[in-house]
Design a protein around this nucleic acid. Structure first.
Length: 256
DNA sequence: ATGGCTTGAGTGTCAAGA
């Protein structure tokens, strides 16, 4: 099973690139974030035409998550229990024997802000819910935009970003707590190129300079991690005209 | 310098992203 996660930064702006990429890369399962559309605007028919089942949980203008799959999607779950404010940031479904959770973790804006407090609360609720979800579904994937660079090696300028949002001790502690509860960062199961990132600012020629952060992740429950054969970042999309500011992360899992 | 792009909303220009 080839599983990918990609923050598209608006499905309407990126629909063409998404279709092209699905045809080229042919992933079995895709988690999308920041679709920025209500469900009525989701291209279910276009997805079905190229052989993908789709679930979407969206809202106007902000957030929005989707799961695409070549195989049928079962037992959908919408929204993070305890965070019932209408922000569409979590969607889960079962594909064959794997439970897939698509997440768009809040950005947090700035350390100490109200949005930062919301981010930490969201992560605490995620941790609690994943504990239950992993008991129900031991073969669990959590894929998405975590808005956390876990370590200094995931940041192009660690000193400049020291204790800034996406890199702060509190956010990194929350990420480590997720791993400690029984997950691994699929990307780090394998030797990877230095300076591997998944997001580059649109400004300041950041992509050309590789001024990026690794903030999009695929976490595998320990039981599933033994089936992981590869993990990589697909930088090609970020180099296209009118790109998303995020690149996809792709993992390959052995069939059961 | 709190900027720099990009998107959605909507037709002014701002909020939000990271």
């Amino acid at each position: 099973m080839k599983l990918a996660t990609w923050n598209v930064n608006s499905l309407k702006a990126r629909g063409g690139q998404l279709l092209e990429w699905l045809n080229e890369e042919a992933p079995d399962v895709v988690c999308l974030q920041e679709t920025k559309t209500e469900d009525a605007g989701f291209p279910y028919a276009a997805m079905a035409d190229i052989g993908y089942h789709a679930l979407h949980s969206g809202q106007k203008t902000y957030n929005g998550v989707a799961i695409l799959s070549r195989r049928a999607l079962f037992s959908p779950h919408y929204d993070l229990p305890g965070m019932d404010d209408g922000q569409k940031r979590l969607l889960a479904a079962t594909v064959e024997d794997v439970r897939v959770v698509c997440v768009y973790v809040p950005n947090g804006q700035a350390v100490g802000s109200q949005k930062f407090a919301y981010k930490l609360a969201w992560l605490a609720h995620l941790q609690a819910w994943l504990d239950e979800e992993k008991r129900r579904h031991p073969r669990l994937v959590v894929a998405g935009d975590f808005n956390i660079a876990p370590e200094d090696r995931d940041v192009y300028d660690p000193e400049g970003w020291r204790e800034q949002v996406l890199c702060s001790s509190e956010e990194r502690a929350a990420f480590r707590a997720l791993l400690a509860a029984g997950f691994v960062d699929a990307f780090r199961l394998f030797e990877q190129p230095e300076k591997s990132y998944t997001w580059w600012d649109y400004r300041m020629l950041a992509f050309r300079r590789n001024h990026g952060l690794r903030i999009d992740h695929v976490l595998l429950s320990n039981e599933l991690a033994t089936r992981c054969r590869a993990a990589r970042i697909d930088k090609r999309l970020r180099a296209k005209e009118r790109p998303s500011d995020h690149a996809p992360v792709i993992v390959e899992l052995d069939e059961r």
